[in-house]
Design a protein around this nucleic acid. Structure first.
Length: 498
RNA sequence: UCCUCGGUAGCUCAGUGGCAGAGCAAACGGCUGUUAACCGUUGGGUCGUAGGUUCGAAUCCUACCCGGGGAGCCA
């Protein structure tokens, strides 16, 4: 069967394509059909004089997203978007679609989310899902090539890994079960059996977060490695990210183009070593005069931009009254863009003073807030590795730094361009008595962790691991502003359908 | 939970106290190379819901519902 992706192979030959109508344009004797077949989009041309009346009438009856089979000759034509188009000789209609809700014009977020099952057919969504697939494939390839064993951690659990976070509770016969928010503890058990393992599965967080970075159901990859210390852990995390980014750049170039992703920083991510700074150094950076003046400058820039945008809007609004119809449409479009950008700028103007205050008054020992991460990342074009956090803000299972008991051997990887934390990990505590103490300090019930403590009784070894958030990685590589477009059917606060 | 912005035709929006509007989509007509095609005609409304103020409410007030962005928390 012929697919649009391979159309160049059939130059000057006759092929039959099966697919759906993406869009169409017609005049008296010419009909242009954009056909979508899952592998790509191809322009098909029907010339009235070249086909029987029946074929012309079939073309004329098509609606957006109707399904059909077309037969025709592949010709090279630079007027066509893909460089190739199909001169149609026959059309077999499979089904004429009813009025399709998603027109080729713009739509709002709510409407598109209500129609997510159809939105997936749109070009940008199609491209994002293909990049997601490439990332998943790259992750499996990376670990499999290095001898890691993929393991499936349970999704129902009887206990919380980290007591504070919110869990989804379900009935489990006469008992309670929770949906997992990390497979890590099970991963540690498996690592003691297999050496090198990784999980790849869904995780659930009942946090009431309504932001562009949050889902209630998302996919996480959690490698766990016996005999790895923190440095080896960081090396692996960096290698993994470089591998994923390189694969996507190599194999999904077309999709990135559809997504209009600027790849210069992604290319640097592949070739340049990631900066590694300690939490303490990061705090110093936040509190520095340099950061303060950077934010001042940013505030000034935003103020100036706001004035400029306001001026432009006034000018084109004046012009609008006497403009021709097409120019009016252009002006309306630009006014919308200006309004959207002004909203963003106004939000920045409201936020920056708070960011500055929070950065300058940051106290060693706290965890970074969203704005602190944003400020840190402004200095870098590629991912940043931050290590050795205050133990108090981190989980009970993290090993303390032998050189400073206040520090946990934890590591976070922050993606550039505002995409935030994509990796969190640590070297794990491997001493039985210390682990017992930590569980007690965190106020956790020891009996729940019986089996976990066994791992420290029977051949305990130094080991490390981390978790990679799939959707944030997809968002970063695709340049998408919201994780809801990185997963086929996002589950979020207030969104359970479709 | 809190802050903030919004809800008007199938869709995207304008209308801020006085006759319910535009573009797109739909239907019909026109156009020989379009590519978010273009041009013309027609049909299309519970102005989120409930209450209040007013001679008069899409517009002002109150409560609630739904959605966007953000904080907290996190990947």
């Amino acid at each position: 069967m012929a697919y649009i992706k391979n159309l160049s192979r059939y130059k000057d030959k006759e092929v039959t394509l099966k697919g759906w109508v993406y869009n169409f344009r017609s005049s008296k004797n010419l009909y242009f059909l954009e056909l979508r077949d899952g592998t790509g989009i191809c322009q098909c041309v029907v010339s009235r004089s070249d086909v029987p009346d029946k074929v012309w009438e079939a073309a004329d009856s098509l609606q957006q997203e109707s399904s059909l089979e077309v037969t025709g000759t592949v010709v090279e034509d630079e007027r066509s978007t893909g460089g190739y188009e199909l001169q149609i000789s026959d059309i077999q209609i499979i089904q004429i679609a009813e009025d399709y809700p998603i027109t080729p014009k713009e739509h709002g977020v709510e409407f598109l989310m209500e129609n997510r099952h159809l939105w997936l057919r749109s070009r940008r969504q199609w491209a994002a899902m293909r990049v997601r697939n490439e990332i998943i494939y790259a992750i499996h390839t990376f670990f499999q090539e290095r001898g890691f064993i993929q393991m499936d951690a349970p999704i129902f659990t009887g206990n919380a890994a980290e007591g504070t976070t919110t869990l989804f509770e379900t009935d489990y016969f006469d008992d309670k079960a929770y949906l997992t928010q990390s497979g890590q503890l099970y991963g540690e058990a498996m690592a003691m059996a297999q050496g090198l393992i990784y999980t790849f599965g869904p995780t659930f967080r009942a946090e009431k977060s309504k932001t562009r970075r949050h889902l209630t159901e998302f996919w996480m990859i959690e490698p766990e490695m016996a005999f790895y210390d923190l440095d080896m852990n960081m090396d692996l995390a960096e290698e993994l990210i470089k591998f994923i980014v390189k694969r996507v750049l190599d194999r999904s170039a077309g999709e990135l183009e559809i997504l209009e992703r600027d790849t210069t920083r992604l290319k640097k991510t592949v070739t340049e070593p990631f900066p590694r700074i300690s939490y303490t150094e990061a705090v110093e950076t936040l509190k520095s005069n340099e950061t303060a003046s950077m934010l001042d400058k940013m505030l000034e820039d935003r103020k100036k931009e706001h004035v400029d945008l306001g001026r432009e809007k006034e000018e084109i609004e004046k012009e609008r009254g006497s403009a021709k119809k097409w120019r009016k449409a252009q002006i309306d479009q630009r006014i919308k863009e200006i309004a959207a950008r002004m909203n963003q700028v106004e939000e920045d103007l409201r936020n920056i003073p708070g960011w500055k205050e929070s950065a300058l008054n940051f106290e060693w020992g706290n965890d970074f807030g969203g704005s602190d991460e944003t400020i840190l990342m402004m200095k870098y074009e590629i991912p940043l590795i931050v290590h050795r956090y205050p133990a108090e803000v981190k989980a009970f299972y993290m090993k303390r730094d032998p050189e400073d008991e206040k520090l946990a051997l934890a590591v976070d990887v922050l993606a550039p361009e505002g995409y935030g934390e994509i990796i969190g990990g640590s070297q794990r505590e491997d001493d039985l008595q210390t682990m017992r103490k930590r569980i007690e300090e965190h106020g956790l019930p020891e009996d729940v962790f019986d089996w976990y403590l066994d791992l420290r009784k029977y051949g305990s070894v130094p080991h490390s691991g981390f978790g990679l958030g799939l959707e944030r990685t997809v968002a970063w590589l695709c340049g998408l502003s919201h994780v809801r477009e990185t997963i086929p059917f996002p589950r979020m606060l207030g969104r359970l359908r479709p």
